[in-house]
């Protein structure tokens, strides 16, 4: 479909995502035919419209979301190299991406199916490389790094079958707790993680169980002036946490002595 003034007028509307009906189908078809001028127009408009994000206040994400992102990324290690895109595929991919941004669900499903077929060879190659990368990362981060310690926590009290693992780095002064199937709590209660050092308990943060999924929690940093962390424990406390443990301890475990 050749470029025209009418199609050029649809480009800003496509960029802001309002096209529907025959306008949308016509313009999506025009993009897929490879109109570079309209593709560039959409990209330019999208960059300019991004200014509108400053019209609303920014919002600080919850710290748990950062941990979640780190863990999700760790579960998908990159190969450490950029996958080369042949020029023809890049142009087609760019057109498809732009069409995806402007099109409705039916067209999107159709284009996703096309993109998935085109990517099949790249995915197979990347899968093998990801496995190799994950093995290397595991080895480097947990098996060969003398700083990182893995501490198993055993269930106590009302949750004798609870289990947990703390990945602790004295250098980072932080711990990550992973615990499958922690019991749900009343609305006014939370779990609280504790560092235990020199017979004293130091609050490390509160968290809610994740239901059916394993609970993952990144602690607050070990405060300055605290000596060697010898043990970790999890107790049930009033929502928001307390300065010293008051409730029942349901997980506990000690840092193994260095050999």
């Amino acid at each position: 479909m050749p470029h025209s003034e009418r199609l050029a007028e649809l480009a800003p509307l496509a960029a802001i995502g309002v096209l529907d009906g025959t306008d949308r189908e016509e313009f999506a078809g025009h993009l897929l035919s490879g109109c570079g001028e309209c593709a560039r127009s959409i990209r330019n408009w999208q960059h300019e419209l991004a200014f509108l994000a400053w019209a609303v206040p920014s919002l600080t994400p919850d710290v748990a979301q950062r941990t979640r992102l780190r863990l999700s990324a760790a579960a998908e290690p990159r190969t450490g190299r950029l996958v080369p895109f042949p020029a023809v595929w890049l142009a087609a991919a760019a057109a498809l991406v732009l069409a995806l941004l402007a099109a409705d669900d039916f067209a999107r499903r159709r284009e996703l199916s096309h993109a998935a077929r085109e990517n099949a060879a790249l995915v197979a190659d990347n899968r093998r490389a990801r496995e190799e990368g994950a093995a290397g990362m595991l080895r480097a981060r947990f098996l060969e790094d003398p700083d990182v310690q893995a501490i198993f926590l055993s269930g106590l009290g009302s949750q004798p079958n609870a289990r947990g693992k703390v990945i602790y780095s004295p250098l980072a002064r932080r711990a990550i707790l992973v615990s499958p199937a922690l019991a749900p709590l009343p609305a006014d209660r939370q779990y609280e993680l504790w560092f235990l050092s020199g017979g004293k308990a130091i609050a490390a943060g509160t968290f809610d169980p994740s239901g059916a999924k394993p609970t993952v929690f990144e602690s607050a940093p070990v405060p300055g002036g605290v000596g060697v962390v010898e043990k970790f424990a999890v107790s049930i406390e009033p929502r928001g946490g307390v300065a010293q443990p008051t409730g029942p301890i349901i997980l506990a475990g000690g840092v193994p002595e260095k050999s």
Partner: peptide, 22 residues
């Protein structure tokens, strides 16, 4: 692109709040 998850976290720290606001 080289697989550095710390870099992803740093980018998140820099721009996550503006993106989340939007």
């Amino acid at each position: 692109a080289r697989g550095d998850a710390d870099a992803l976290a740093a980018l998140y720290d820099l721009h996550g709040s503006r993106a989340l606001g939007l």
